[in-house]
Each structure stands twice: as C-alpha cells, then as structure tokens.
Design a protein around this nucleic acid. Structure first.
Length: 429
RNA sequence: GGAGAGGUGGCCGAGUGGUCGAUGGCACCUGUCUUGAAAACAGGACACCCGCAAGGGUGCGCAGGUUCGAAUCCUGUCCUCUCCUCCA
C-alpha cells in the first residue's frame, strides 16, 4: 500500500499518479478525511488516557478512603475512552480497506495506455523459425506424439486441465531442473522449496487479497489458500522482520505449481495448455534496498531473458503500459515468446512467459518487511521485485511449435539434453 | 486426535495486579584507554502512532473480558515443544 504520508503531504502528486494508473483520484480526498477523523479520535483518546494513567498511579499510593471517591470519576473517563476507541476503529478499518485497494503509483517511465496495443516493444531477440511446411499448433503436435493428453485432464479435473505423458512430462521436468540450476549457479539465487498453500495474511501482503479473491482457490475448512504464484510465499518469508543490512539483497528462486481460477478469463485461451487452472512456474524474488531496485529490475529481467537465450527461442521484451500492468507494481516488463501456431488457424502468437516487476515499497509496507540501514539506525522498508523465470506451459508450447519437424518430431533444446539422458528429439514411439 | 508445558525487546532470559517498556546476559553504537585492535571501564540504544517541538499514547503470540489500573487475573484462539496415537 501507499504511504499514508503521501496522502497528507503530497495529495496532488498522488492524485496525478492514480489518474495515470487509470484509477479514480477522488479516493485521495476520501483517504484524507478518514485519516483526519482517525487522528482526531486518537489525539483526544490519548490525552484522556494520559490523564487516567497519571491519576491511576496516584491512586495506587492514595489512602483507601480517597480511592473510592476517585474511582467513579475515573470510570467515567474510562468509558469515554472506550467510546472514542470504538469510533476510531470503525473509521480506521474503513481507511485500511480503502488503502489496501489503492494501486501503486506507476514509474514515470511506464507508457500511458489502455490495453496491450499501448505496450512498448523494447527489443525482439532471436530469429523466427522458417518452415517448409505448415506448422501445427502444439495441441496437435503434442497429441500426435502422445506426450500431451488433454482428454484425460478433462476426465480427471474438468476443462483447463491436461495431462503430460512420457517425454512430455520429462521435458517439463527437465526445464524445471535446468532453469533452477541456471538461476542458482549462474545468477546467484538461493533455492527455496515453499509450501504450496498459504495463510491469507500472505495474500494480503502481496496484494492478491482482498481485491482478487475471485481468482484464488480456497480451502474453507482450514482457511488455506493455494498459491497463485510462488511470489506469495517467497515475498512473505521475511514478513514482519527487520533484516540487517548485511543480509540484503535477498535473492530467492522457487519452483511451484500455481493455481488460478481464471474467472476473469472465462472462454479465453481455452485451446491447448496456454491457460490452465494449474501450471508450473519458476519464480524469482528479490528484496533489496530502495536505492538498488531500479538496477535490480534490470538484473531480474536479464536473468529471465537468459532462460530464453539458453533455449534459443525467439522472444521479445515489452514494457507494459499503465492500463495493462499489474496495479500494485510500479513498473513491469513482460517477456513474450514466439509461438508460430498457437492460435490454431489464425497462426502465430507472442506468449507471455514472464512478468518482471518492481513493487518498490508497496508490498513491503503490506508485509511489514524492513531492514536496518546501519547497525543502530531506524528500520526502513525494503523494495520487493519478482519475475517469472519462466512459466512452464508456454515454454512447452514454444518448444513444441518452434522446434517441430515435418515428420512430427520435436527437437529438444541443447541445454536440456543433459537433463533428458542425452536425447535430442522427441519422436513418436 | 489425546495429555502436559510454554509463547516477553535483534537473540537468550527474569518478572504472577500499581514508579514495568519491562532486571540481567549476549550482540550493537559512542567515548576513555591503545600505534591499531582486543580487553577493561563509562555512557547510549526496542518498535509503532500522534506532535514543529516539548511531550503524549500504544505494543509482553492474537482477540476479547475483569479492574481506577493488567506482561501479571479470566475466556477464546493461534503457534511451538514434550509424551502418546497415527502416517508418506
């Protein structure tokens, strides 16, 4: 969430920022008036508390007769404090609810825009494949090879589920291992194996709650929530902690499945494995000091791009516009991989395989994640960043479609071969 | 799931109704001493909120309650540990 001080001290700047983010700037005045009411209640209650505290201390030393007479008076004062506190807590929770839903202020570099068409393509890397035949969509390539079984997924769990079989499952597992190793060995991340269900506090911390509850799977019985991304557990590991200066930056990488209800995209991307309720992802999270977060976003993006370069798959980097980016980050790059046939008869598509974002102190405030700049200095909020490195189904699509051969086989990217017993192709058995 | 014990500051650990935000130790910061460091000694230093400041308020897992007054008493809840039970 945004610093309440910004609303007090620079309301016009916040309004301008929210307008850019496509959000209604009138909340600023709402926040300010709620904040003033909270503070008024607080000030009054606190001065009364001060009175009652000193009177109570005196009463401790007073004679028994004096006590009785004072008691009634103090009780009255106490009742009025209770009243004020009750009032305050109502207003305060209203204020909090509001603050939790107010988006982040976009970085000045974020292009203004409504939708995808306003995103800025930063660079395109790699050559598009040339085919002597008409490339097939992945669901045909995969099904023909017997490595993708959509029917079984539907039978087991319904639409938006699928089964990977044999070398299909092995290919995904190879990708997971190779990507993790790359980030650990080459980019210096620490591998984390987190829980795949979390408490709701974590989801409030990263922003999925309260606003996007619709997209989450929730176990009511134990109040567990399935993670929609490893960003949630990774960013929350140090929630409510004060890290000392020597232990930042923190660089975590994790493999997890991700679970999403996809209520908002009903009917979209239903064909193939592009958008499932369950998918695997490698996620990187950085916690760093405020002065470094711009630089770290570049690093994060480069780490994710390194995966694309290693696989030798064509991709492009997109700077996502105000209307399309996640509302809680301040700036977001997407990496889109080329897939020549993933729209079926309509042909090619650029698939989002990674989103790399800088949240600045927005999530750190929600998670109360701080660090101490100097051994006895005051704690300050860290900056948090996260990025996929990468999302697996879409990389699988890119491999199946870009690396398909006329005979229906798939060429396995070189870097993955050591993870697949030296095999260089997936062919029909 | 059953029985018991416990949750206090960055860490360890005292404290069972009123000068307790909390004794002590470790770690930390400053100074003295030293060529420098260590040691020793002296001092400082929790977090959050309101306030220009002076100052005030809140926080002893969390949420309620009793009381003029709660770390301390009561209720609920969560978590940890030990034993039993069960299990990949």
């Amino acid at each position: 969430m945004l610093d309440i001080r910004l609303f007090r001290d620079q309301p016009d700047w916040v309004k301008a920022g929210l307008t850019r983010a496509g959000s209604d700037p009138s909340v600023v005045d709402k926040v300010r008036s709620l904040d003033e009411r909270v503070r008024a209640c607080k000030t009054e209650a606190e001065s009364k508390k001060a009175k009652i505290n000193s009177a109570s201390k005196a009463l401790g030393k007073a004679s028994p007769e004096e006590r009785d007479s004072k008691r009634a008076e103090l009780r009255l004062l106490g009742d009025s404090i209770t009243e004020l506190d009750a009032q305050r807590s109502v207003v305060e929770s209203e204020l909090n609810t509001l603050l939790l839903e107010i988006p982040n202020i976009p970085d000045e570099r974020v292009p203004q825009g409504k939708d995808e068409s306003d995103n800025v393509i930063v660079r395109t890397v790699g050559d598009l494949p040339k085919f002597d035949f008409k490339p097939k969509p992945h669901w045909e390539v995969g099904t023909n090879l017997g490595i993708l079984d959509i029917e079984s997924g539907i039978k087991l769990s319904g639409s938006r589920f699928y089964v990977l079989k044999g070398l299909g499952a092995a290919l995904q597992r190879a990708l997971i291992s190779w990507m993790l190793d790359l980030h650990i060995e080459k980019h210096g991340y620490t591998e984390i194996y987190p829980p795949f269900v979390v408490k709701k506090e974590c989801l409030y911390g990263t922003g999925q709650l309260p606003k996007f509850e619709d997209n989450l799977y929730h176990d009511i019985e134990d109040d567990f929530w399935l993670v929609p991304t490893a960003e949630v557990p990774l960013t929350n590991i140090h929630r409510d902690e004060i890290l000392d200066n020597s232990s930042v930056p923190v660089n975590y990488v994790a493999y997890t499945p991700c679970f999403r209800r996809e209520k908002m995209s009903a009917g979209r991307d239903v064909r193939g494995i592009k958008r499932g309720h369950q998918f695997d992802k490698i996620e990187m999270v950085k916690l760093c000091t405020p002065d470094l977060s711009n630089q770290e976003l570049d690093n994060l993006l480069d780490n994710a791009e390194d995966v694309c370069r290693g696989l030798k798959l064509p991709y492009r980097v997109v700077l996502v516009c105000t209307g399309e980016k996640g509302e809680f980050n301040s700036m977001q790059y997407d990496i889109e991989m080329y897939a020549p046939a993933s729209k079926g008869e309509e042909g090619e598509e650029w698939l989002e395989v990674s989103s790399c974002s800088n949240f600045r102190d927005y999530q750190a405030r929600r998670t109360n994640l701080r660090y101490r700049p100097e051994p006895s200095a005051k704690p300050e909020f860290l900056h948090t960043l996260n990025g996929s490195g990468l999302a697996l189904p879409r990389v699988m699509i890119a491999i199946m479609e870009n690396n398909q051969n006329e005979d229906g086989s798939i060429t396995i990217p070189e870097v993955l071969r050591p993870y697949m017993h030296g095999r260089d192709k997936i062919t029909k058995l």
